[in-house]
Amino acid sequence: MSDGFYLDNDVVLKTCSYGAGAELVELSTTGDLAPAILALARFTLRSRVERSRVLVDAQNASAQLDAVLAQVRFLEPTPEEVDIAADFEAAATEANLSFDAGESQLVAMLGARGAVALVSGDKRAAKAMSVVVPELERRLVCLEQVLHSIIARFGLEPLRSSVCREKASDRAVTNCFQCSSQQVEAPSVLQGLESYLRSLRSETGRLLVKSAGMSGAEVAQEDSVGST
């Protein structure tokens, strides 16, 4: 049985800053199984919101975060998974790549526990994963795929307004949402997200799920189970 989706700190923080925490949880819930984050993230995320110098509406982000934390599962790595994560970090450092402890532990658990995919807002970690653990094909969902799915299911607004309010949260996302323009249609934003995805795929090989949205992760998991 799959252990569902794992969420890293960056994707939780950024979707909460965009007022889309509930949408993230809904999209990453499989059946009755809620998504999971590292147990330590409960404290790390609150600290990041409180100390942020880029959030325009920190109160909204904090309220969103509280709602997400009330719904997700919490993960504790085993000693073996901590050791595997340390090996990942060492390999990334040797390759001059960035792979922090939280991200590496989630990746270690992803491989050991059979989760559907890691949902990450950290582009540097994505590049590190593609080099350090290339065998995890189609097991990563990036922030742009989450936002693509949100637009496809829930519509462009109020997401675009929130993204454009929090321009400093993620410059690539801000560019995709064309915040310098007054009126933009959903297809244009989706095309921007897809263009970014093509660029990220060219840098990370077969790491990302195939689809433009995050639903492709569950399809890949079903295909994998069916082939065993």
Rank of each mutant, 00 (worst) to 15 (best):
Q178L: 15
K210M: 08
L208K: 09
A217K: 07
S202N: 14
R198C: 02
L156K: 06
V225N: 11
A217C: 03
G216V: 07
L200N: 04
S195W: 01
D170I: 01
V225P: 00
S162I: 00
V173R: 03
Q191W: 03
F177N: 10
V173P: 04
K210P: 00
R198A: 06
G205H: 12
L200V: 15
T204W: 06
G226L: 11
A172F: 03
R165D: 05
V184A: 05
Q182V: 10
E157A: 05
A217Y: 01
E203Y: 02
L159K: 12
K167E: 14
E218R: 14
L190W: 09
L159S: 11
G192N: 08
K210Q: 14
E185N: 12
A220Q: 12
L207Q: 07
L197K: 13
Q182G: 14
R160T: 03
L159P: 11
E166Q: 13
Y196P: 00
V184N: 07
E185V: 11
E194W: 02
C176I: 00
P187A: 10
G205P: 00
E157H: 06
V173L: 03
G226M: 09
A186Y: 09
D170Q: 04
T174V: 01
S215I: 01
E194I: 01
V189Y: 03
Q221V: 02
A212Q: 13
L200W: 04
L208F: 08
R153D: 11
L208P: 05
T228H: 13
L193N: 08
A172G: 06
E166Y: 02
T228R: 15
E185I: 07
E222K: 12
G205D: 15
K167I: 07
A152I: 02
G213R: 08
E218T: 12
A172N: 09
S161H: 07
E194M: 10
S188Q: 15
C164T: 10
A217I: 03
V225R: 15
S211R: 10
G216K: 08
L190M: 13
S161M: 01
S188R: 15
V219C: 01
K167H: 09
E166N: 03
E222R: 14
R198L: 02
S169Y: 00
V184D: 04
Q191F: 05
Q183I: 09
I151N: 08
R171E: 13
R171Q: 13
T174A: 15
S227W: 06
G155W: 04
S215Y: 07
A212K: 10
F177T: 10
V173K: 03
Q183D: 11
T174G: 12
P187C: 10
M214R: 13
G155P: 10
S199Q: 12
K167A: 15
L207M: 08
L200T: 13
S199H: 12
A186P: 10
L208W: 03
T228P: 05
A152Y: 00
Q191T: 13
F154T: 11
